[in-house]
Amino acid sequence: MELKSIIESILFSSQKPLTVRELREVLSVTADKSDDIFINSLKKTKDEELQQVLAELETEHSLLGRSFRLACVAGAWQFVNQPEHAPWLKTLFGEKIRPPRLSQAGLETLAIIAYRQPVTRAEIEQIRGVAVDGVMQTMLDRGLIENAGRAEVIGRPMTYRTTVDFLEYFGLKNLEDLPSADELRRIPVTKPKTLVTADAVGTGEVANAEVVVETEKETTDLPAEQSCEEEPKA
């Protein structure tokens, strides 16, 4: 018997998604109740080991191409169906109860917060070019974003970040799981030599100029509590 099949079995029978910490707890409590040498040996299973096993299970299940897969949402693992079978499952269970879909403005605002957090309202408005008060309030009310303390700049404006609910709503493992995360956190913009303005088309050679302007925020180090590796704090 190997750890992988034990973990699979626990997740298969669990009534809720389990984090690495909860899985470790199950192993540990089982070891305490048993005299078996093998069961006892699992007491000292490390988080990294569990991560590894979970990642392997995830890959194995996806390679098998079954009707279900192992998914990690906001740091917790569980078995879910493949979306293409939704029509039949909806007949079985009825439509999922979900809040109404987000507006375009909401999605844009959320995208900016997700990639740039912690971020102030002014920074969001700078990127979107419009006021965001209304849409920010909606996101706060829906629990998709939260206050993240004040920025140490003039006026000490409030900063915002996404919540665990945000990850769950979009089915994301962690913030690294955001689409094209690397690209959006730090955007190098290359200025062309000539910018076309006049009606007559400018004098060519637009690309490969040397000026690389990077946006000030280079948040590669994300808040660790929202990643799958270090599960969210309760």
Partner: peptide, 25 residues
């Protein structure tokens, strides 16, 4: 910059819709 976030918002929208079709066991 705005364009990149607009695209990202589009991808989030896809994920949002996809999530409606995912049922947990």
């Amino acid at each position: 910059e705005y364009k990149k976030f607009k695209d990202a918002a589009g991808q989030l929208q896809v994920k949002e819709a996809l999530q409606e079709d995912i049922f947990a066991r």
